[in-house]
Design a binder for these strands. Structure first.
Lengths: 327, 327
DNA sequence: ATTCTTAATGCAAACGATTGCGGAAAGGTT
DNA sequence: AACCTTTCCGCAATCGTTTGCATTAAGAAT
């Protein structure tokens, strides 16, 4: 026989299916003795509930859809881990789909999640996402790692401005007079925040005009960007890079050019991924608690699913700076 | 209204539910004209199939369970990506659960997958896994990245022996007389293979006795291990580390001790993770095609699910050596 | 003894999709 | 004109679970 159903248990014990169901779910009024008898038998027969049937009837699947850019990204990998921990604790499971930063893939993911009957969504929307596309799925959702200006979505994200500020202020306090920023595309939420924090730190001490280099698609552009900047007479004594991967490309370039880090130039990254400890010099980086981010987004979503309406819609995490050798 | 069902479409158009179902699934004989009419309407109404209902009836859910150690591990992250690509192409979706290398978590995962009604399993079993536990779930499955001696499971994995051999032979051909190996626990399949390849390369050229250091739990033990080895008079001029993380710890230690890489000591890692390009010197490493691994395991499993019995049960990938600066 | 509570359990419908079987209409064959 | 095919489509059962309502039995109150 395949997996036993409620009916199988009911037949063996001579009860009705409803009684078995109620016993297993602790619902309704059941004689404690029969309840125990049923639970025991269920265990013995290796009963596991059929989520498909349950979700078909009950309208809830105990499934949460997770839509992120790329599970290979150490930051999101870590966040997912946090999500999994919290979700399992609360009896939910996760359906993960990558968007590869593509709007098309994101639409596919959204429609699929709906089709799969997930109870709610944890989503890190790709750039250019129309907020209405999210609302259009008519599912409770929590935004992870992003923030839509002026919206009142439930959101769990990092204080990117503070992160950029911390990184830059550190460079300044270290005596750097001309810290460069290598930013990413400004249609990415974190990129805007980090840039803003960078500018704020500069303005605070009256250092107006420092150069910002922009990566359009790929961190692989960085060597050429820096090369071009230096060759056209540009100067810098510190670099705040959009993230650790950017910073690593930067370190590589500086090494090739024979520029000493941190003696001549300090480098600060962002995300503090595990591998940032293994570069040489090891990478000073803005650190986040990704696990917290994952857990918090799940607990927020599940309370939504339980019909609560948490008053606090925005959960913002304060990053800290993990100072290592590069600056 | 919520998401429209077959019934809704049927009512609007005046057909029966069965006709709608058959039209949408291209089954049975349906007048091409009505089929198109129905498909058009379905599109218009934004119909998406309800997988729960489908799997309840049809006995297949188009869901594949993925059970791995840890989605943060770059190797498995990459493998998962490959799986996702292939699965989506074939109309399947993935349910991911981490085991954190714990037998207990693995059992939870297995029971959960059964409960969720996945059609099949892609699993990288934790050490000490009893093959019978896997067969016990009574689901088609493919082993990923491991190999059970003597079993005839469907398996997709790497030729770890060859990998270890390539790494070690490279060190030897580079003139190293005493390459050290830092291995992991031998109850891990890859650890056994890599060690064997290492020994084979040594024996081939009659270099019998070279030292092997064993990490028991955590790569963080490595500095102490090497320290102890050196202090007790041990010597080496090359190191083949179990994986890139091990190699990175090794590089860090060597740097701290002032030992020049690759001048005095060459270092070779395994997995060729993206971040191995950013150490200094960059890390020579055994490279695998993780995407292939993921895709292949999915295509193998889906052909099982379609009732085929592929003759070739073991798919073994040949790694290559990606020579960079460290050796 | 009769009626009223209360506690414990069963009945049956419903969720949305699939599918074997049968029926009706249309056309073809003698 | 009677019969047979073929084509197209509907009926109804089914999957496993949940849940509102009905039912039964037992005990309490009169």
């Amino acid at each position: 026989m395949g997996r036993p159903s409620l009916k199988d248990i009911a037949q063996v014990l001579g009860y009705s299916v409803s009684t078995v169901s109620r016993s297993l779910n602790n619902k309704g009024e059941i004689d404690p003795k029969t309840r125990e008898r049923i639970r025991e038998k269920a265990r013995e027969m290796g009963y596991v509930p059929n989520y498909a049937a349950r979700s078909l009837k009950g309208k809830n699947s105990q499934l949460i859809g997770v839509i992120i850019d790329d599970n290979t990204n150490p930051f999101y990998a870590e966040v997912f881990k946090g999500m999994e921990r919290e979700a399992q604790k609360r009896g939910y499971h996760l359906l993960l789909i990558n968007t590869h930063s593509s709007l098309e893939d994101q639409e596919y993911a959204l429609s699929l999640m709906k089709s799969r009957g997930v109870d709610g969504l944890l989503v890190a929307p790709v750039r250019d996402t129309n907020p209405e596309d999210l609302e259009g799925v008519k599912l409770p959702f929590v935004i992870v790692g992003r923030h839509f200006d002026g919206s009142d979505f439930y959101e769990v994200y990092n204080d990117e401005v503070l992160g950029g500020y911390l990184a830059t202020r550190h460079l300044i306090e270290d005596g750097k007079r001309c810290p460069l920023h290598i930013r990413s595309r400004l249609d990415l939420f974190p990129a805007r925040g980090r840039l803003e924090g960078y500018l704020r730190a500069l303005n605070e001490v009256g250092m107006g005009e420092c150069p910002v280099l922009a990566v359009e698609r790929d961190p692989a552009e960085i060597p050429a960007l820096l090369e071009g900047f230096l060759d056209s007479g540009g100067k810098f004594d510190g670099i705040f890079a959009y993230n650790d991967l950017y910073a690593m490309e930067t370190l590589l370039f500086l090494k090739k050019r024979g520029i000493a880090v941190p003696k001549e130039v300090s480098v600060v990254g962002y995300d503090n991924i595990p591998y940032s400890a293994y570069t040489s010099p090891s990478l000073t980086s803005v650190a986040l608690d990704e696990i917290w981010l994952g857990k918090k987004s799940v607990s927020l979503l599940t309370s939504l699913l339980e019909g609560k309406k948490p008053r606090k819609k925005q959960w913002i995490q304060k990053p800290i700076l993990n100072v290592k050798e590069s600056g």
